[in-house]
């Protein structure tokens, strides 16, 4: 049952699974621990992306099928492309709407919303 290549794939998939799930957990923990929206966004957009991406890659690798691996890679690519865009939009919207940074912040060089523009 436990032939060489079979075992290697299982180990690689397991490593990806454990790493991905731990990154996801730490992202959620960061969401809870960071003091304000903007710092929370760091946790969600980086660790969260890597966590879900690793899990998707694990699923693609487990199938041992080039089509499914490609599909998982496409999903990973979608995720990596969309996560920063949504984080960026949310940060921009929150800042323009006037949600403040945490008191720990040292600088804020972004001028506050001139007027509510409809551009996004």
């Amino acid at each position: 049952m436990s032939a060489g290549p079979d075992m290697l794939v299982a180990i690689a998939v397991s490593v990806l699974l454990v790493a991905g799930s731990i990154f996801s957990l730490l992202a959620a923990l960061g969401l809870l621990r960071f003091p304000d929206l903007y710092t929370r966004m760091h946790a969600a957009s980086k660790a969260g992306t890597v966590g879900s991406g690793f899990l998707l890659l694990a699923a693609g690798l487990h199938a041992l099928d080039i089509a499914i691996l490609l599909r998982a890679l496409a999903g990973f690519a979608f995720f990596v492309l969309t996560a920063p865009v949504s984080a960026h939009l949310l940060a921009k919207a929150a800042h323009q709407a006037g949600y403040k940074l945490t008191n720990l912040s040292v600088t804020d060089q972004l001028p506050l919303a001139k007027q509510k523009s409809d551009r996004l």
């Binding site: 699974l17 991905g20 799930s21 996801s24 992202a27 959620a28 969401l31 969600a44 969260g48 992306t49 966590g51 879900s52 899990l55 998707l56 694990a58 699923a59 998982a72 995720f79 996560a83 949504s86 984080a87 949310l90």
Partner: peptide
């Protein structure tokens, strides 16, 4: 947003 990301991981597992 984070919930969706974790749900995606769940589905993969």
């Amino acid at each position: 947003d984070m919930l969706v990301a974790i749900a995606i991981g769940f589905i993969a597992v």
